[in-house]
Amino acid sequence: MKPPAKEPADPSPASRETAADARTGVPGLRTWRAVYLFVLGCFIVWVGLLTLLTRMFS
């Protein structure tokens, strides 16, 4: 039985970029959604810490 034929590669720059750019290359954050959630999480942590600082030392 022959293995299924591979999809022919699309030579256009746009499609090459799409395939390569889907990978984030960030350890532990494999999708862009995860990267964005991480950034939002950092933002929330910073606001929380700054609010805590404000409350602690006012």
């Binding site: 606001v47 700054l50 600082l53 404000t54 602690m56 030392f57 006012s58």
Partner: peptide, 11 residues
């Protein structure tokens, strides 16, 4: 000290 002079009111 900074907080007592209201310098750490970040948010």
């Amino acid at each position: 000290v900074a907080g007592s002079f209201h310098k750490l009111e970040a948010v």
